[in-house]
Nucleic acid binder design. Structure first.
Lengths: 260, 260
DNA sequence: CTTCAGTATTCGTGATTGCCGAACAGTAAT
DNA sequence: ATTACTGTTCGGCAATCACGAATACTGAAG
């Protein structure tokens, strides 16, 4: 924390993140934007390229390579929670026909860890790794509501109250409490237009919270009946998962935690 | 290339990759394995942690964070080829009921860019970003066969001939040529046991090759008839895609290339 | 064909800083 | 309390990273 950060690494990530934002960039472009000497940028770029994390296209633009996809895939694969949740997503997708995904809190954001499309599934623009605010969507609020008290405080303290629709701090806390008691969150058109969602938390028998499973579909199809139907299969399936998680947790409680 | 690599960054990636292999590691562990001072490791770890790319669990083990998943997702999302291929995978998965994925050459490996499961889909252990050899699987060979001549030479030169089953260099080249002419590759049990595959290349009308679409299913179900059936829908669908790709390519030929 | 404006790249030098080793602190088990 | 591990901090020297100027390319414009 107090430890002086390694400058070269900080700069490297500045570069990587900038390249990502721009979807490819050249040396001069980066030098200008980041206020660094061209030669410095060049040094970074060529080491990254040698390492295989960057590629240079025909017009000398540098791009992130698929190595990052490999890293990302591995970090997901290694988490035992995901291994338990993934088959479940598929079951739910098959049974409901809708698109299903798994979301967790990560660094104060809502991160989409993985998704499976059902046969009738809508095509969302949300890809793996996508991030959004925790406090603007029902699924985000649900996650927020189930986080350990300490963590939730921390995150709430970073928020500016009142929120957009003039919701005060106290009101928001109340909303979260209610959501937690309900154990399910419904939403319409919050992240993507015309998309309705039903979300339930994933919690093991030791009350460790991992994230939420979200079923998403076209708002039109999600009548009151359908909503209820989806919620039922969802809670039923997830209840089964909770037991499995606990089993797996017996040997290694710690590593089961989702990396934030 | 001749440019001296930045040591700090090389070390950082050594650390990151080691952590990934071990699925979490501590300071001393890394110091021992990488022959570096504990303090050095600590410096790296804490900067990475500050940046949000590493997390430290209750027992002081460091893990890669979901930020890497976000990076990986973005690099995929940004590639316009993927945006065209992804919906196609879903169509094929729905029509055939099998699992479908998209593979490309990346740094001499066969990389799995994305997959979609059909209703009858088997559960493969292959996650996004997974890598394997190019020359051991039918889908890999198919990709190899369709790469630009120059690139293929390069990769073949790195191989040790004769290969395991005593295939000589000339024989292998011949096999690839045949595969390319066929325009389809069939496989059984090569990457995963009891899994049969059918693969076709994705090529636009300017003969730019992007990767291959692979349908995978239980070997038992893939009778001669079923194989042929799958191949038909596959080639039909992919032919349609080729046109779309060309359309999109008109404005930006270069950035359409998959980053290797 | 030359000029020009824009790239990427190389090189050498100086000051910064990343690295080390040793000292410190915290933890769990003996 | 001792032991044997962890992770963390600190100070100082040398290596090395960042810089800016010089060079090499490239392509467009005259």
């Amino acid at each position: 924390m107090a430890q002086a950060p390694i400058r070269a690494i900080d700069r490297m990530f500045d570069i990587i993140e900038t390249i990502l934002m721009h979807d490819g960039a050249g040396v001069s472009e980066l030098a200008a934007e980041l206020n660094m000497a061209k030669s410095t940028i060049h040094g970074h770029l060529s080491t990254l390229k040698n390492r295989g994390y960057l590629v240079q296209d025909d017009s000398n633009q540098y791009h992130l390579s698929l190595n990052f996809l490999t890293l990302g895939g591995s970090v997901r694969q290694k988490r035992t929670v995901w291994n338990n949740v993934e088959p479940l997503l598929r079951e739910i997708a098959q049974e409901t026909g809708e698109s299903v995904n798994f979301v967790v809190e990560s660094q104060g954001d809502l991160a989409f860890v993985g998704l499976v499309h059902g046969t009738d599934g809508i095509r969302t623009k949300v890809d793996v790794g996508f991030r959004t605010n925790l406090h603007t969507s029902p699924e985000g609020k649900l996650v927020l509501a189930h986080l350990p008290e300490a963590r939730r405080r921390e995150l709430l303290d970073e928020l500016e109250f009142p929120l957009g629709n003039s919701v005060g701090r106290a009101a928001f806390r109340a909303e979260l409490d209610e959501l937690r008691d309900e154990g399910v969150a419904y939403g319409t058109e919050t992240i993507v237009k015309n998309v309705a969602t039903v979300s339930v938390p994933v919690i093991d028998n030791k009350d460790v919270f991992y994230g939420a499973i979200v079923v998403a579909g076209p708002a039109l199809r999600f009548t009151q009946d359908h909503l209820e139907e989806v919620r039922e299969t969802l809670t039923y399936k997830v209840a089964k998962l909770n037991i499995d998680l606990t089993f797996e947790t017996q040997e290694s409680t710690v590593t089961n935690q989702i990396a934030t």
